[in-house]
Design a protein around this nucleic acid. Sequence first.
DNA 1: TATGAATGAGGCTTCATTCAT
DNA 2: AATGAATGAAGCCTCATTCAT
Lengths: 217, 217, 217, 217
Amino acid sequence: MTSAESAGEPDAPRPPARRRSPGRPDRRAARREQVLDTAARMFFERGYEATTTTEIGAELGLLKGSVYYYISSKEDLLYEIVEQYHRDTRTYFDRIEASDAPPLEKLRELITTETAHTATNLTRSSLFYTEWRSLSPERQRTIVAERARHEQAVLAWITEARAAGAVRADLDPKIATYAIFGMVNSAYRWFRPDGRLTAEEIGREFCELVLSGLEVR
Amino acid sequence: MTSAESAGEPDAPRPPARRRSPGRPDRRAARREQVLDTAARMFFERGYEATTTTEIGAELGLLKGSVYYYISSKEDLLYEIVEQYHRDTRTYFDRIEASDAPPLEKLRELITTETAHTATNLTRSSLFYTEWRSLSPERQRTIVAERARHEQAVLAWITEARAAGAVRADLDPKIATYAIFGMVNSAYRWFRPDGRLTAEEIGREFCELVLSGLEVR
Amino acid sequence: MTSAESAGEPDAPRPPARRRSPGRPDRRAARREQVLDTAARMFFERGYEATTTTEIGAELGLLKGSVYYYISSKEDLLYEIVEQYHRDTRTYFDRIEASDAPPLEKLRELITTETAHTATNLTRSSLFYTEWRSLSPERQRTIVAERARHEQAVLAWITEARAAGAVRADLDPKIATYAIFGMVNSAYRWFRPDGRLTAEEIGREFCELVLSGLEVR
Amino acid sequence: MTSAESAGEPDAPRPPARRRSPGRPDRRAARREQVLDTAARMFFERGYEATTTTEIGAELGLLKGSVYYYISSKEDLLYEIVEQYHRDTRTYFDRIEASDAPPLEKLRELITTETAHTATNLTRSSLFYTEWRSLSPERQRTIVAERARHEQAVLAWITEARAAGAVRADLDPKIATYAIFGMVNSAYRWFRPDGRLTAEEIGREFCELVLSGLEVR
DNA sequence: TATGAATGAGGCTTCATTCAT
DNA sequence: AATGAATGAAGCCTCATTCAT
């Protein structure tokens, strides 16, 4: 399903599902993706707890029970939605971290990419930040750990740049790190795909603001 | 600082409730405040939906039914908790806005105060930002409206300072506003009262970072 | 008119409570009577189940718990109200039955008296007819038995009069009996003390209608 | 479901519900009707307030939660039961009123039909008269308004007949109206389907009694 | 593939009642 | 004579989930 979500869905379309046999497209997987997308949108709009399986079914033209043909539990549904987002996050983060750009360049790249990613996956990113509490403790831990990894890295970059004299010595790297994530991750709350600025432009603004705040004049 | 809260409660104690008869402290109101505080902490720890009235009662040494001697509904309980925070917010915001300091001074003052406020009322601020969805539509509207008011004001301050040449012309005031609120309001997620830095110090860091990012060099 | 009822109370005032000692009026009994009257009115207006002890207390300027200083249970309260009415009913019924008037005269007397009684004790009679189900099985039985006794008597009177040729032979005495009670006992539903006709006039109308319907022309 | 309800149910069977697909009888609707009938009987026997959803479920071989597969709330359940009765009432009333029979003929027809209707729908009529207080204010209003309409019509008929000299001038039409409804509507309290007389016979008795009471000799 | 019927656990809330003060 | 705090039982209702068809 390359596309055409119901009007309210601000997320970018997921890539089409894999096909089992070339001749016969796997309809099940396609429908499954549809279930995920619909649920994601509804969770985004009303919250996870407030969305019932009955409602999800209705939105899909299915009865409550039929939804379980595609999912194994409501929590799994949420997890899968969040996991997709999470996975993407990991991907670009690993790439950036592995690069040999100077630390502030990495930071710039992370801010830009993460802002764009958040903005292009509004509903999923929103769920990632607001509904993780409804996941099982173990799954929460996975997510928290990954976030911590990102924070550690950013902290390390800033610390490194500071040691190298590129970042103001009078700033606390840890607080700066929190500030950056607070700023970037807030995008899901107010970004509108049809707004005045694109995700890229917003990323650039963030970089300007933060980096010129950090940098030694 | 009359009251010893259970260890987990990071919020500053509320001032004692009004007394009905001057000589004899109003026990009821005190207990009621205890209920609010306990519930606030539990909502903070597990989330509003995940906290049952049975659990709240148990934590207070009451049966679930008995909790209703002090509250009228679970949602009202949440609202009251959030409203206290909300009210305080309004108070200092109005004071700052009414002052005749230059716009960037107002901004500095707001960032500092709001950061401190968030940090000193960790659980309540947390609920304010994460559980407002569990409130009735009307109550949600109240909160959203107030937040919008703050954002409008900050936007106006930045715009004004920019027009006066005090803020870089290449930055978008609106994005800057969002960035500031994202930063400041993220404090409830990571601030720890027993941490290395005080709320005031964090506020100062934020100001440094943001203002030197905004200001024309 | 010894007692000042709240405006809505259509029942005739109960006689003042007995005094324990001539010099010191028994305040408790008086207050108790007030509780009965207030409860009776509220049960009448909202129904027994729908009236809470909290509300009864509030109406009396008391707290929930304090009401129990005067009553032993909510059901007892209802029973006592209904019992007063019941007792009166028994009194005049016994008097009529014991008289040596001819059967149709007794019938006339019963219709008149019962209509008047119903009308003068609107709330209590209403409860007698509508809320008896909330009483304990045993108490229900008492009431049902008494009503049956009245019906038996009326049936006997009509049968006797019919045997004597005073009542039409083509009418079924049992149905006539039911009809009469249905008619008379419906008064609590529509009688208004400030209406066009007095209770006595209504009683007379009933007699006219029924007796001329029954009597051989 | 043409029949054979559990022994205690004195109401006539409802006509079968509409079918969704012509070939396959709609089981759901049938079961739903069963729920209504069972609940009606239980409300009749113990009263609405005294009947719990748990009990209704048990009687149907269901858990309390499962009952809600067929109903939306306990009050809705009551309303639907009462509404069916109400609807029937309206139907025959409109027919009679629209006829061009002379007023006393209409009266006779109404008494007969209403008595029969009450008797053939004992439980529902009973609920109609005794449990309407448990309905929402708006629903109460609907019912009260309809009853008032019937009373107005009967009052008009009697008044008309009286003006034409067919009814005794010394009787008050309004009281006569109340008397008639009191009489007819009391049937649910004592009618037994297996009794000595049929509903039709009882209706005839009522007519005899009332009309010969009303008519000028 | 999807339905329909039911489960079962649990949630929020209400309320008559008690009892020490 | 009345209060305030709490109890405890029960009530209505919701919902994720299952499973035979």
